[in-house]
Design a binder for these strands. Structure first.
Lengths: 112, 112
DNA sequence: TTATCATGGTCCATTTACGAATCAAAAGGT
DNA sequence: ACCTTTTGATTCGTAAATGGACCATGATAA
């Protein structure tokens, strides 16, 4: 018998993704797009779009973001700061941090 | 021969997800977690975490959000307004909108 | 009311993502 | 310098996601 993978998700993750799906659905209707139309524009099946709008945790993030972008729901509001700028900043920050994370071997002498 | 699905993504989607991965990686290192440790906590393999941090568009959104949540990267900052509140608001908005989207059959007389 | 279209759900075939194991290389502590 | 551990990158088998077709129901325009 095949073993089934059961993932656990935090309440926050579930709610956040559910909210995202709701925002997408709302935005779609406000723009008067049928599910099929939006699905076509995003290059996905209508069934998948349904799951996205329902907040299905197992949809690929690329597809979800793509659909969201099409109807104008942006996670990172690129108002003041552009996304690319953020990207660079993140990279910069990473070069400052140690490249590999490592625990001290034993107890250090700051333990009293 | 099996036909291969090739998706197209907008620049925004790619950059946003890439940024998200970078934020996760930065947060992980700041918290001095090894990739293996974070992967364990999230219940995913180290390989998958690598792809997430790299900004792989094909990872499931649930897993990405879960990892992000663990290291403290929140998409919707639940500061002032809680997520649940937003959820309710979205639902309310949906009930106001027409339940199905439909184009008018012919030309309406508001075209002059 | 009626005809039309959007939506929701299910089933199946196929593609794909994911976990596990492995290896090489780089990095950091001592 | 040495040794340990993190990281990056493969490969492969299996479980899961996705598309497509289908049907039933619901909603809306005429």
């Amino acid at each position: 018998m095949p073993k089934t993978v059961t993932r656990t998700y935090s309440r926050y993750s579930r709610e956040a993704i559910s909210l995202l799906g709701g925002l997408i659905r709302t935005a779609r209707k406000e723009r008067k797009l049928s599910a099929q139309e939006l699905a076509d524009r995003a290059g996905v099946s209508r069934g998948l779009l349904q799951r996205i709008e329902k907040g299905d945790l197992k949809c690929s993030i690329g597809v979800v973001f793509e659909v969201a972008t099409i109807v104008g729901v942006n996670l990172f509001d690129a108002e003041k700061t552009t996304l690319t700028k953020h990207l660079r900043q993140t990279e910069d920050k990473l070069t400052l941090l140690p490249k590999s994370v490592r625990k001290p071997a034993k107890a250090v002498d700051d333990d009293f």
